[in-house]
């Protein structure tokens, strides 16, 4: 498993559009993608779960990928989050 910490920079948090972008960026990797927000772990491949986490701007999060191509998936996830 690989993990990386980052911060949500989107002006309105991870609302629908950023959530869609995030999920489509990681959806094609076979590994599991999890976003840790505080105590919560949400499924990074489900738009619903990402939105349900209600992650506001400035929130520190940790992204963990586990399984085949976990490295690439993590890079893709960080890239899409950095692209505001």
């Amino acid at each position: 498993m690989v993990c990386a910490k980052t911060t949500v920079l989107h002006e309105s948090g991870l609302h629908m559009r950023p959530a869609q972008e995030f999920v489509s960026a990681v959806a094609n990797y076979p590994c599991k993608v999890v976003i840790k927000v505080g105590e919560n772990c949400v499924n990074g491949k489900s738009i619903l779960s990402v939105m349900a986490a209600g992650i506001q701007k400035g929130t520190p999060i940790e992204i963990c990928c586990e399984g085949p191509q976990e490295q690439e998936a993590l890079v893709a996830a960080l890239e899409v989050l950095a692209k505001v």
């Binding site: 002006e11 309105s12 948090g13 609302h15 629908m16 738009i47 619903l48 779960s49 939105m51 349900a52 986490a53 209600g54 992650i55 506001q56 701007k57």
Partner: peptide, 12 residues
């Protein structure tokens, strides 16, 4: 924005 996120998160 904050309110929007709150509603969206709760609904989803």
């Amino acid at each position: 924005a904050e309110l929007h996120m709150a509603v969206l998160a709760r609904l989803t």
